[in-house]
Structures are given as structure tokens and as C-alpha cells.
Design a protein around this nucleic acid. Structure first.
Length: 203
DNA sequence: TCAGCGATTAACT
DNA sequence: GTTAATCGCTGAA
């Protein structure tokens, strides 16, 4: 048995699943890893949002619109879509599904597992707080993700995901409407946001 | 070419 | 609860 191997890199086939809502929920508890300037940072994913293709008014790809910015969403799943919001926040998305089916999962919250000093420094914080990585801009900042990572392969050496068999209990998963997308009309009400309540903070 | 705005955060009161 | 910061992207001209 390979049960000793507690952490395994998530294969590219995982991202090709066309059910982005299911994936958004399944990504809770997965470990997001970055290697920035040779230093590996790991964090559990504790909050996500699904952006469900061209029919989703909240998505950048609504109506099949393809622009220079959202090009990464149209590529086959398993790459990063990073873009700048409000001129200052880098928002990190996992591109899913297959080519020309622009679906993505926004990583809205993480809990850092290692390199805490570096994470605090990236966030300009002194002390560890419960909400250090809660919020899409903060999650990216904790891990050192920025726009240069847009479009990169999640099987590569800079950003990847691992399965460390951390799985929220069913009752700990909370689904709810997405935030900041009021303009999306009825789509704003869809329960595409998932968070892990009472996730572990000690390992 | 350019005005308006956003999948936000932090620092206020 | 309110608001400033801040800039690349988008779409219209």
C-alpha cells in the first residue's frame, strides 16, 4: 500500500471535470501549493466559488465573450486564471472543464500550513489571525500569487494542488450565494459559493 | 482614445 | 456601517 504517501499531486484529469459546481465543493480541503523563488508555501482551501461557463452572468466569460483577459478560461482545465481586481488584488482561479468551455473556481479562502513567517510578511501582518487568508485577494497574497501566474500549468513547478486527504465532513460544508455579484441578477442567487466551517487550524 | 467600473480590502467612525 | 485606495480591462466613440 502507498498509504505512507499522504500528499499526492492532483492529476490534470481532475480538472477536466465539466461539473464546476461539484469541483468547487470538492476543492475544499485540497492543498494549494506555490513555489515562489524556491520557497514552497502550502495552504488548505477553505472557501471557493464556481463560475459556471457562458450562461453564468457573474462570469467573465458570460455570453461566450472571449477577451485578452479571460483567455485562460477557454483553455483546457488545469491552469491558473489570475487577474487584477480593483487595481490591487490578484484573484486566483482554477480553470476547469475542457477547451472552449470557460469554467473556473475562484479560491476565496485558505489556511496556511507552513512558512507562516513568510505568509505574514506577504500580508503585511505581524500576528496570526483567523481571517488571514479569508478573502480572494488575501488568499492569493498569502501564497505569493500574482498576475505573472496567469495561464500557467497547475502541473508545473510554480503552482499545483495536492490531496492530503483532508476532507470536510458533509455537515461542515456550507453552500450559499456568491458575494459581490449583485449585478448578475438571478445568477447571483445560485448557491455556487462553498465554505468549510470549523476547518482544522492545527496539524 | 478614454470614461467608467469591478469576482476587494483595510482603516476609519 | 462607511469609505478611500487604485489600475487594468472593457466597450463605446
Amino acid at each position: 500500500m502507498e498509504s505512507e504517501n499522504l500528499s499526492q499531486i492532483i492529476p490534470v484529469s481532475y480538472y477536466h471535470n465539466t461539473d464546476v459546481v461539484w469541483l468547487a465543493q470538492d476543492l475544499l480541503g485540497k492543498v494549494l501549493c506555490t513555489n515562489i523563488l524556491g520557497i514552497e508555501t502550502r495552504a488548505i482551501i477553505v472557501e471557493t466559488e464556481a463560475y459556471n461557463g457562458i450562461t453564468d452572468k457573474a462570469s467573465h466569460a458570460y455570453g461566450g465573450k472571449r477577451t485578452n483577459r479571460n483567455d485562460a478560461m477557454y483553455r483546457p482545465g488545469g491552469i491558473a486564471y489570475v487577474y487584477l481586481c480593483y487595481g490591487l488584488h490578484h484573484l486566483f482561479n482554477v480553470v476547469t472543464s475542457v477547451e472552449n468551455d470557460p469554467k473556473a473556481v475562484l479560491i476565496r479562502g485558505i489556511w496556511p500550513l507552513n512558512q507562516l513567517e513568510l505568509v505574514l510578511k506577504r500580508r503585511n501582518q505581524i500576528k496570526m489571525k483567523a481571517n488571514l487568508g479569508i478573502g480572494p485577494g488575501k488568499a492569493s497574497q498569502c501564497l505569493g500569487i500574482n498576475q505573472t501566474h496567469n495561464g500557467i500549468d497547475l502541473m508545473g513547478n510554480h503552482i499545483w494542488l495536492e490531496n492530503q486527504n483532508l476532507v470536510p465532513a458533509t455537515h461542515q460544508i456550507v453552500a450559499g450565494p456568491r458575494v459581490g455579484v449583485d449585478y448578475a441578477g438571478v445568477d447571483a442567487l445560485l448557491p455556487y459559493r462553498f465554505s468549510w466551517k470549523n476547518y482544522p487550524t492545527k496539524f
